[in-house]
Design a protein around this nucleic acid. Sequence first.
DNA 1: CGGTTCCTTGAGAGAACTCAACGTCGGTGG
DNA 2: CCACCGACGTTGAGTTCTCTCAAGGAACCG
Lengths: 250, 250
Amino acid sequence: MPFDARSTESSAALGIRPRCDLCPAASHCPVGGASRDDLACWNASLHSLVPLPTAGKMLFESGAPARSLYIVRAGCLKSYTVDEEGNERVRAFYFPGDMIGLDALGADSYPSTVAAVTASQVCRMPLTEVRALLARAPGVMQNLLERISRDLSTALALSGDYTAEQRVAAFLVAMSQRVGGAPGAVRLPMTRRDIASYLRLATETVCRVLTRFEELGRIQSESKTVRMLDAAGLRTLAEPVNLMPVLRAA
Amino acid sequence: MPFDARSTESSAALGIRPRCDLCPAASHCPVGGASRDDLACWNASLHSLVPLPTAGKMLFESGAPARSLYIVRAGCLKSYTVDEEGNERVRAFYFPGDMIGLDALGADSYPSTVAAVTASQVCRMPLTEVRALLARAPGVMQNLLERISRDLSTALALSGDYTAEQRVAAFLVAMSQRVGGAPGAVRLPMTRRDIASYLRLATETVCRVLTRFEELGRIQSESKTVRMLDAAGLRTLAEPVNLMPVLRAA
DNA sequence: CGGTTCCTTGAGAGAACTCAACGTCGGTGG
DNA sequence: CCACCGACGTTGAGTTCTCTCAAGGAACCG
């Protein structure tokens, strides 16, 4: 049963316009880097705050009419498609500041399903307003284009024929840049299965590689948290993959 | 060097403003679907016609400052990156009507090198004018976004872990939709090596798959031309890949 | 007609997958 | 509070697909 964002808007914290100047994700958010005028535009266009209180909750389903663009405010989400055999294919992970639905800008329905990996909050902006905003605020458009370009680069990076070790190393490096927790430690909120699906590997292969990394003293794995003991070595391994180009603070 | 009647036009027309209403690629070109006003905008912005008279000729190199967007008028081009070992990785093929440089819209330098696969002609439009045009003509912007979205989908499609047969079948199907020559026949202007690089396979694997397809009566291969004897079967094989979504006439 | 480059086929090797079993974790209800 | 259940994580054994290495033939061009 598709989860309708609007249906929850009436409850509790919602209905309240999100205030960008109070957002916990401001440092990553496109709004953060916007000029004063652009910021005003964004703020006026942000329609509502959508809560996804539990893991697995869907934001929208593949094929649904594309009506909104979302920005992650807190939590972690994934987009995926499901083939006829029921296999999930994870296409992307989203973290605070990331935009969801960019690939629907040129289409009229979402090409993939998006669901929460952990409890999350996202800001919603109707596509009609996005389009209007693009015409008014060139800075916003530039930001959007940069984000799409980056998504494209990431997709191309993953399409390369790299070894399992290179892929996993690249993933760890990218995640540590993206959600850096304690120095040298990464928290991976998603399951091994999701990671494997994203990297186009078998779950077992991801496990084995992590084990091997640990045996070699490159990492120290403890369920969902990974300490990177040899960050330089991992970076060297990951280098050719070039997954998720360095994100700049807009 | 195979080239058509247009070659005369090219040598004569160098430096002449291209006339979109006379373009051989009009049916695929974004300009073709544009409104009368948008068309006027495009026409005014198109800066020059660039001829790439021989295969291998470079349009621009990876890392060069991104200054222009190009539209293919005739021929076939490829974009690729070169890793530190000197291996080429083909990222895309371009045919008449395709836009080159969309992934540079959000960057300041081209992320890949683009070179002619066969003798080609491309229309050039300075990025400064593109950006100005985007603000003026919403229809053009929508068209651009659609194209970027499609590129993204294609990249994501290729990143899946499909078998060699699925990849090759998907490629044949996509190419037949894209450059449909005689009914049921596809002309593949690029080398096997380029195809393999694009599909992330070894050259030999592409050859073997084509041979197997021929043994099974699915195709009839004759150097660069492939007759598709069992288009339905190929489509079924290719289906999960979903390479290059159906292109719509704008 | 000699020299590349491209295409094709064969044989062997290796990386990742599948199948299978077992340990672990977190939630739920008795 | 603890026992149970299901999902997740880890490890092992065998298989398979694709790659690498090698060589011969075909096409193209100077």
